[in-house]
Amino acid sequence: MNLTLKVWRQKNSKSAGKLVDYQVSDISPDMSFLEMFDVLNEQLINKGEEPIVFDHDCREGICGMCSMFINGRPHGPKQGITTCQLHMRSFKDGDTIVVEPWRAAAFPVIKDLATDRSSFDRIIASGGFISVNTGNAQDANALPIPKRQADAAFEAAACIACGACVATCKNASAMLFVSAKISQLALLPQGQPERYRRVQSMVAQMDAEGFGNCTNTRACEAECPKGISLENIARMNRDYYAAKFASEEEV
């Protein structure tokens, strides 16, 4: 396959970037999108040019690092996958592909396609955990949890914090991510003691990071590689109202 790539090049977080055209040829349709970038980078290195910086780690769809905005969609044209799981057979020979970094005030570009997503880490640090005493592990069945409840918590826990929800949202809102991280604990007995403290702290941190406000377009749900549902956002909103208007837990 021969392709024209328009890739965002940006020297560092302070400089202005621009789209640069690159040609790649003899690309196998069985390559992943990231492998195609490896080929391009090798070309650039051989020519003595600076290779394109992009985030990647596990390359099997579970780490959440790869983050390219491909032809106007996060992780490219397919649903339910990350960029490393996107294969070149999803494109046609001769296609022009535009590749940009995640764009959000809360995700500043570090270089080229790599963005700083530590705002997500700070949201987790503000309350996305449970406090437990150390010691021997508890018996696994000490706390009975209904199957439905366990499944819903597991579905929320599938979030890999890639940031595709923020990237695709027209408002750069992080509601889907935050709601998944709140729901995975709010649905389980272990999450109850800090439930109303957690939702207040995490929402406050989300707002402080400069993410936008959700307008329920459902784009995040459609683009999430792990299929996190908008029901989590509704659950977070319910918990937030319960925390602010009913509980005496002040944060």
């Binding site: 328009k6 965002w8 789209l19 905005f69 032809n71 106007g72 969609r73 044209p77 535009v98 940009e100 764009r103 959000a104 005030a105 809360a106 695709t168 027209k170 408002n171 750069a172 809102s173 400069g210 993410f211 936008g212 406000n213 307008t215 329920n216 377009t217 459902r218 784009a219 459609a222 683009e223």
Partner: peptide, 27 residues
């Protein structure tokens, strides 16, 4: 809220395929 939402994405996308994942009227 619209003003804040615009501020949350200071650099716009060159290519943005909104119709692939949401209804035009919701946007």
């Amino acid at each position: 809220l619209t003003y804040e939402n615009r501020k949350a994405r200071p650099v716009k996308y060159a290519a943005y395929n909104g119709s692939a994942n949401s209804k035009w009227y919701s946007r």
